[in-house]
Computed example of a mutant assay.
Amino acid sequence: MDPRILARLRCPVCGEPLAETTAGTARALRCPRRHSFDIARQGYVNLLAGRAPHTGDSAEMVAARTDFLDAGHYDTVATALAAAATKIVSGTARTGDTGPADGDGSAYPLVVDAGAGTGWYLAAVLAALPDAVGLALDVAKPAVRRAARAHPRAAAALADTWQRLPLADRSAAVLLNVFAPRNGAEFHRVLDSAGALLVVTPTADHLAELVDALDLLRVDPAKADRVAGSLGAHFTEESATVHRARLRLSRTEVTTLVGMGPSAWHADPARLAERIAALPEPVPVTLAVRLAVHRPR
Rank of each mutant, 00 (worst) to 15 (best):
D38N: 14
R51W: 00
C14I: 01
A23I: 10
I39L: 15
G43F: 02
E16P: 02
F37Q: 06
L9T: 07
D2A: 11
C31P: 06
L6E: 10
S58F: 01
R34K: 14
P17Q: 03
R8E: 10
L9V: 04
A7R: 14
E16M: 13
S36C: 15
D2T: 07
A40V: 00
F37C: 10
R34M: 11
G43E: 00
G56R: 04
L18S: 05
E20S: 13
D38F: 09
R27G: 09
T21L: 13
S36M: 10
Y44D: 00
E20Y: 04
R10Y: 04
D57H: 08
A28F: 06
C11F: 08
A52S: 15
E16D: 15
A7M: 11
L47S: 04
P12N: 03
F37G: 10
L29T: 02
G50A: 08
G15A: 05
P3A: 15
L18P: 10
V45A: 15
P12A: 07
P12V: 01
C31I: 07
T21P: 01
S36L: 13
R34A: 14
A52R: 02
C14Q: 02
C11R: 08
P17Y: 03
H35S: 03
P17E: 02
G15Y: 03
D38I: 04
R4A: 13
D57W: 08
A7N: 11
S58K: 04
P17D: 01
G50L: 06
V45R: 05
T21K: 14
I39S: 05
R27E: 11
R30M: 14
T21S: 13
A23W: 06
G43R: 00
A7D: 12
L18K: 06
A40D: 09
A40R: 01
T25G: 14
N46Y: 06
R30F: 04
L29E: 00
D38K: 06
R51D: 12
T55Y: 05
E20D: 09
A52V: 01
L48H: 09
Q42K: 10
